[in-house]
Design a protein around this nucleic acid. Structure first.
Length: 439
RNA sequence: GCCCCCAUCGUCUAGCGGUCAGGACACCACUCUUUCAAGGUGGGGACAGGGGUUCGACUCCCCUUGGGGGCACCA
């Protein structure tokens, strides 16, 4: 089966997995899965000074997090040095390269070099515009453009899918394929990812590492979906892919964009919120458990049922799991309450009304049996209370919300009260009566 | 400086000679509501400019402009 598609992702271990690299890896992986081929990983560790075990680990972890599984043993470029040297010596012997101050320099052909790029179409360079370049340094270490070709041949790579910043390296590499008398692979150049200012995405734009997004509460499925749509579209108006198989099935090289794309975090977060709201509390909970413990919650005491119930309630309105965890923590630990500006405004606007609403509500709610403390009953009680007091429902509900959460934003108040529990809710309402109105 | 690539709403994009230039995020209204979010409805918002080709250009060609990338004994 020499026809089997073989693609590779070939990052250098620089310490983090850049989202651009992650997108390149994803496209390679999708292409391999779509075509029944193999997705390989090659670590470009020839620059010893920049490589380390930990850096390699980061790449492996990032790919694993995104769900991109590698089909064969990971290849380390550094392991092929003697092969690279032998190949360079061969070109030297054949007169296709020459010695220059101890290094071996490749003789670029003068004629036109071109290829049919799967994304950009026909691209041509004049060989005469490209200087002869070093393939083996004077210390006999091979250089990038040479090892890439040697290793892609060795790994029997059929499609080289990589960032379009490599377009101008391609003629050099094709010349090496020719010199080695090997057929070049199909080149599939991918447009770059830019920051909001149109410049190449870099650290000064903020988070650029996959791990940053992992830590800020982005789900891998959302990240995958978002990255897939950066420079590619399925050919119809779908934007949300809830299963990985849907993505694989929809993927096609023909729909890859030529224009670079701006990384829009707001849209990523929107998409993440879509995924979160469609994820079950059982699946969500393990993702926030660590955060809750860090926040000081005693999860055993709270109990799994209440935690899952609270997770379900919050999952509808959180855009990241970090936000989800924070909202949850507040519901189980009053000390985490931070009154926001709108809450303060509500209090200072009518301190007396705020307190009397709380008093009346507390009195009414304290009469509910512990076993009856559930959303439906709570709503009934509060509505009839508002009715008796001849107050708009919001005049009763909103002070409770503020007292219990410190915010003017939350799940429906009756649900909130159920989640927080009777004793705790009443305690919070009592405590809030002592809050000083601030301007 | 030289070489290469790119060009539709602010952003991601559909469009592959004849469309009211469509969708999504964001934004603004309205709606729903017990607040917010979500949801629903509606709105503003784009073919960089100039030449051709054609009965007819967002679409094809050329130029200009703009943007990006590359020109190492880095990867």
């Amino acid at each position: 089966m020499t026809d089997t598609v073989r693609v590779r992702f070939a990052p250098s271990p620089t310490g983090y997995l850049h989202v651009g690299g992650a997108r390149t890896a994803l496209f390679n992986w999708l292409y391999a899965r779509r075509s029944g081929g193999k997705f390989l990983l090659r670590i470009e560790d020839t620059d010893k000074a920049r490589s380390s075990e930990a850096h390699i680990r980061v790449i492996l972890d990032g790919l694993a997090w995104l769900g991109l599984d590698v089909d064969e043993e990971v290849v380390f470029q550094g392991a092929g040095v003697s092969r690279h040297q032998a190949l360079a010596d061969r070109l030297l012997d054949e007169g296709k390269a020459y010695e220059d101050e101890g290094a071996i320099r490749f003789r670029m052909p003068r004629e036109e070099i071109s290829w049919d790029d799967a994304v950009y179409g026909h691209i041509r360079f004049q060989g005469s515009d490209i200087k002869d370049w070093i393939i083996l340094r004077s210390d006999r270490s091979p250089t990038y453009n040479f090892t890439v070709v040697a290793d892609d041949i060795e790994m029997r790579i059929t499609h080289v899918m990589r960032g379009d910043d490599h377009i101008s390296n391609t003629p050099k590499q094709i010349a090496v394929y020719d010199a080695l008398e090997r057929e070049p692979p199909t080149f599939v150049h991918l447009p770059m990812i830019h920051g909001p200012d149109g410049k190449r995405l870099s650290k000064r734009h903020g988070a650029t590492a996959v791990a940053d997004y992992q830590q800020s509460g982005i789900l891998p499925a959302a990240m995958r979906n978002f990255l897939a749509l950066l420079g590619w579209n399925p050919g119809d108006e779908r934007e949300l892919f809830f299963t990985i198989s849907e993505l694989i099935e929809a993927f096609s090289v023909e729909k890859i964009q030529k224009k670079s794309a701006v990384f829009d975090i707001t849209k990523l977060e929107w998409m993440n919120g879509q995924y979160i709201s469609r994820t079950t509390p059982e699946q969500l909970f393990p993702l926030i458990e660590g955060e809750l413990v860090d926040a000081g919650l005693d999860l055993d005491t709270i109990g799994r049922d209440r935690l899952l119930r609270a997770t379900a309630v919050q999952s509808e309105r959180a855009r990241t799991t970090l936000e989800l965890a924070h909202r949850l923590a507040i519901r189980f630990d009053a000390s985490l309450i931070e009154r926001d500006a709108k809450a303060n405004k509500l209090i200072s606007k009518d301190p007396t009304g705020f307190r009397s609403a709380l008093s009346a509500a507390a009195q009414r709610l304290s009469g509910i049996e512990d076993s009856q403390w559930e959303a439906e009953r709570l709503e009934t009680e509060l509505r009839s209370l508002a009715n008796e007091l001849e107050l708009a429902p919001g005049k009763v509900f909103q002070p409770i919300r503020v007292a219990v959460t410190g915010n003017t934003v939350s799940e429906p108040v009756n649900v909130l009260l159920e989640v927080v529990g009777k004793q705790e809710s009443l305690a919070r309402m009592e405590a809030a009566k002592g809050w000083e109105p601030t301007a």
